[in-house]
Amino acid sequence: MARKKKSSAPRLDPVVAGVFLLAAMAVGFYLGTLYQGSRGPATSAPTPQAAAQKDPDLSARIAAAEAKTKTDSANPDAWTDLGNLYFDADQPAKAVAAYEKSLELKPKNPDVLTDMGVMYRRLNLPLRAVESFDAALAVNPAHVIAAFNKSIVQLHDLNKPDDALKTLQALKAKKPDAILPGGHKIDDLISELKGSGSASPSFMR
């Protein structure tokens, strides 16, 4: 049976998404649902071992993708596919290298830039992550996942809630009806950040 082709849409870092527990809201607004592109939710960032157990043929698919980049090295999609597999296998350094090669061949792909930002964050390089998200937003200012990821890194890793708020407000200006991962409205998150009244919102304490 033919395997369904996986979406190349940008993914949310499973660890990153968990910081948006907005307990102050009456309905218990929660943005901790974890998403990677159009695929189903995940509960945590996988280790390479866990990824292999969940997808036993992942190593074989990585090997095939690596071979593809050797025989079709000028194909940016081949490098993107390889980067996505490294992403799934929790091999961020290799994912970044593959995404960089893809971008050399096909610059300014906002989805690839977004996924690369997630991998930089996984490498504990939040400033590089923000740079990558900024590059994606320069191409597509209404890129919801790039803006969402950027705001989380600013809030959680860089401790800059004001910058996170500005990022979300900029997204709203470009896409007023933006729906964030988990089906939540951008207005809800902006309201919570505005209402925190301090450098550390209630859900981060």
Rank of each mutant, 00 (worst) to 15 (best):
V19C: 15
Q53V: 13
L22Y: 07
M119I: 01
L113K: 04
S198Q: 09
M204S: 05
A74F: 04
R128G: 01
V96E: 03
S196N: 08
H143S: 06
A178Q: 07
D111L: 05
G37M: 07
E192P: 00
K172L: 02
D187E: 15
K108S: 12
V15K: 11
T114E: 02
L31I: 03
L180W: 11
T33N: 11
N149E: 15
L105I: 06
A89M: 02
P201M: 07
K185C: 00
L125S: 15
A67V: 00
M204H: 03
V118R: 04
D115Y: 01
A60H: 05
Q53L: 13
I186V: 15
D90W: 04
M25F: 09
D77N: 10
L34C: 13
L105E: 05
I190T: 09
Y30P: 00
L85I: 04
A63D: 12
K160H: 05
I152C: 11
I186T: 04
G182D: 06
A164K: 09
T33Y: 12
S73M: 02
P201T: 08
A147Q: 06
D115L: 02
A2I: 12
A63T: 13
L189F: 14
G195D: 08
A78N: 07
S102W: 00
A89Y: 07
L189P: 02
D81F: 01
H156P: 00
S151A: 15
D177V: 01
M204R: 15
D157G: 06
R128T: 03
A136T: 10
A9H: 09
L82N: 10
R39Q: 11
K166A: 15
E192R: 08
F20N: 13
T69R: 06
S191F: 11
V139T: 15
V112P: 05
L193R: 05
S151G: 10
R121P: 00
H156L: 07
M1R: 13
Q53S: 10
E100N: 13
A2P: 15
G32E: 12
A63R: 10
A52D: 06
G28D: 13
K70L: 13
A23P: 00
K175A: 14
L82D: 10
K150D: 08
L171N: 10
L165V: 05
Q36Y: 02
I145G: 00
D90G: 01
G117Y: 10
N109F: 01
D90Y: 06
P181G: 10
L103Q: 07
D77M: 03
L21T: 10
A51N: 05
D134H: 03
T71A: 13
L127Q: 14
P10L: 01
A65K: 03
E104H: 02
D162W: 06
E66A: 02
A64Y: 02
P10V: 04
K150P: 02
P14S: 09
F87R: 11
P126R: 12
L127K: 13
V112A: 05
S44N: 09
A50V: 05
A74H: 08
P46I: 04
V112C: 05
S102V: 02
N75F: 08
A142L: 01
I179M: 14
P110G: 08
H143E: 04
M119D: 14
N124M: 05
S200N: 14
P176W: 01
